[in-house]
Amino acid sequence: MTTLTHHMLLHWTAVVFYIIATVLLAVSLIFQKERLDRPALLAALLGLIPHTASILIRWQIAGHGPYMARHEVLTSMAWITVALFLIVAWKNQRLRPTGIVVLPLAFLMMAVGAFLNPEIRQLPPSLRSVWLVIHILFNKIAAGSLIIAFATSVLYLLKEKKRAIRITGGLAGLEVLDAYSARFVGFGFVFWSITIGAGAIWANEVWGRYWGWDPIETWSLITWLLFGLYLHLRHFFKWHGAKAAWLMILCFIVSIITLFILPMLTASLHVEYFT
């Protein structure tokens, strides 16, 4: 077996573990069997190990970090998301059920990445900069925390409408879930700000302007403004509960469009990472 086959084998092993973790968490939540939470987290942690190994192997083969081409972008984002989820679930027991949203999103990203474009691509010269690492790393942390915020918002709406699904279990109360949603958006907002800042400084170094209204730049700003709007509406206009959760879901969809859909549709200086 080649090293590349090993890498894909580890990749799919991680996917299997994440699926197991999701099933356990779903059973725990729906049938109120909270004792399954720990095995679920263990499964997620066991998945993170081959996932890490898979990324490291690919890193070694490609000669650059996991930020070039769809496979690398999606798998590394899934890694950050799962790692963030594990930290959150370890620190706060009542947020463990968010895994039923976070983990499927993670393994979906991994599966899509593996099917879309698993081939290794070299780093173009414009992307060879320390700013790339800062820009990408903070963006992934931002996206990871926004995924968790999305999960808390979805669970808020489900819990509010108990008719739709029987969610009572160990999940935090509605007010607390709502506050966590805002907190993760705040966290994501901070890192999205740093992403834009680092990108602008880098653009000035490479292209001689720190802002060029490139489509991805513009939509990144739109996403940032939308999250800013969400935070302002919460703080000054007391938008809480279902209204805030729906707005969060809308903001999240826009962030997905910015990160993954737009690079496939527009001609931009940024699209190289997702082609």
Binding site: R183, G186, F187, F189, V190, S193, I194, G197, A200, I201, N204, W207, G208, R209, Y210
Partner: peptide, 28 residues
């Protein structure tokens, strides 16, 4: 080749650093 003469970028960079620092303090 791109040639540029722009007003001092220190101002813009300071703004970015302050905004990031402020956001960190505000939400973290």
């Amino acid at each position: 080749l791109i040639f540029m003469r722009t007003p001092d970028m220190t101002l813009a960079y300071s703004g970015f650093i302050l905004a990031c620092l402020g956001a960190v303090l505000l939400y973290l």
